[in-house]
Design a protein around this nucleic acid. Structure first.
Lengths: 130, 130
DNA sequence: ACCTAATTACGAAATATTTCGTAGAACTTC
DNA sequence: GAAGTTCTACGAAATATTTCGTAATTAGGT
């Protein structure tokens, strides 16, 4: 049983929900409209499908339904990462990480942060099998 | 102009080509068949489409055509990384990296390798704006 | 009550992707 | 050179995703 990743349109909806918290279709559609042309019923339909799939849950107590995501952002990120890792990087996390940091305009602050994180990780492995 | 990412089926073909070098449809199909059921003409069609899209080039000098990728593996990895970065991580490479390394069973050897890489990166930024 | 605006439900078209069958050409073998 | 095998071309079905129009319902204002 491996989790499925949301489609592109679904992910856009999720991003708004994770950022703003539970929202109505209109609220989501207004956010998305700032980025691109998208009809109200298009957003509605996507969200209805997501609800049917179990990606969202909705509160129908008022006429205007309020939706919220059923998965945590970090879990979804992990699932999508794993997919990319296996499909494009042969499962090698180090290759992926180096690609992510390589030519990119990652800031020094970010690099420092990652290094700190890495030191922690290494620390926590004291005693592991090498 | 932002590059487009290959579809799942296309990526599977590319992975074989990057690993094995220029190959025939039969060779690709045999590799893919080790992983999953897939008909010969299915693989053929995918590769024909990829050629039409400019993802592959083929040598037709012999009856059995020989295909090779037109993009480097690393460029494709980067394009796919960027897409994931922007669609699921709000553009934050550090979040992505930490997600990749976090709960994962990344080996100590890999972590060491990444740290080395990171030190190089930081070294190369001496004199950058902080 | 009537009109208008907002909302949901639903079907279906449009697009993208994946799969495969069939036909015909090119090569092999006997 | 006939029969069988391997290959490409092509169309089309199957599936997945995205988009939107229309109809019905509800709420609010006048």
């Amino acid at each position: 049983m491996s989790k499925s990743t949301p489609t592109d349109a679904e992910l856009e909806v999720l991003n708004v929900l994770w950022a703003k918290g539970p929202s109505t279709v209109r609220e989501i559609n207004e956010m998305l409209s700032q980025e691109k042309e998208v009809g109200y019923t298009t957003t509605l339909k996507i969200m209805q499908i997501m609800t049917a799939k179990g990606l969202l849950e909705r509160d129908e107590s008022s006429r205007t339904h309020v939706y919220k995501p059923l998965m945590k952002e970090s879990d979804t990120q992990r699932t999508m990462m794993d997919k990319l890792l296996n499909s494009a990087f042969g499962g090698s996390a180090s290759k992926l990480v180096m690609q992510a940091l390589g030519n990119n305009k990652t800031t020094k602050a970010e690099l420092d942060e990652i290094r700190k994180f890495l030191d922690d990780q290494l620390e926590n492995r004291k005693g592991d099998r090498e």
